[in-house]
Simulated assay, not measured.
Amino acid sequence: MAPCDEKRFIIDVSGNYFSGEMSADAAGIVASLFAQCDLANRYGNDKLINQYHWLRDFAIQHAESNLIMRAID
């Protein structure tokens, strides 16, 4: 899930004091990781947990991985 836009987005995550600007693709990855994490914690389903880790592994290889990891940390 990602915004369909070429502009950059300012992302603020108050829970971990992150504030940064990233592409729509990276912002979508961050939002998806937060959603996957919440669902995995809520339901403890192995499939949801595996999907979170798959997306995180994908995010590590992204051009903006440093920003993504700081946002979700």
Rank of each mutant, 00 (worst) to 15 (best):
L33T: 00
R42D: 06
V30H: 04
G15A: 14
G15F: 13
W54L: 10
K47D: 14
A35Y: 13
E64L: 09
N45R: 10
D25C: 04
N45F: 08
I10L: 15
L48C: 00
L48M: 07
N16G: 02
D57G: 06
I10V: 15
L67A: 07
Q36H: 14
I11V: 15
N16H: 03
N50M: 09
Q61L: 07
I60H: 12
C37L: 15
Q51N: 13
A27E: 12
D12L: 10
F58W: 03
N16I: 05
G44W: 03
Y43P: 00
R56P: 00
D38W: 11
Y52H: 09
A35C: 08
H53N: 15
I60W: 07
G44Q: 10
D25E: 15
I68Q: 01
F34T: 05
C4N: 15
A40M: 06
R56F: 10
A26D: 05
D57C: 03
P3E: 07
E6L: 12
P3G: 06
G15Y: 13
Y17G: 09
G44R: 09
Y52K: 03
Q61M: 05
A24M: 09
D73W: 06
G15S: 15
A31N: 12
R70A: 13
M69V: 05
S65Y: 01
L67H: 07
N66T: 10
F34S: 04
A71L: 01
C37A: 15
I72T: 06
A26L: 05
G15N: 12
S14T: 14
K7S: 10
I68D: 00
S19H: 12
I11P: 02
L39D: 14
M69Q: 06
H53P: 00
G20E: 04
C4G: 06
A63T: 06
K7F: 11
H62R: 03
G28V: 02
R70K: 14
G28L: 02
C37Q: 15
I29D: 01
L67G: 03
S19E: 13
L33W: 03
M22K: 05
R8P: 00
A24D: 10
D25F: 03
V13G: 04
L39T: 13
E64S: 07
S32L: 07
I68S: 00
E64A: 07
I29E: 02
S32W: 05
E64Y: 07
M69S: 06
P3V: 08
E6Y: 14
E6N: 15
E21C: 06
H62F: 04
A59P: 02
F34W: 12
D5F: 08
F58H: 04
A24H: 06
Q51C: 04
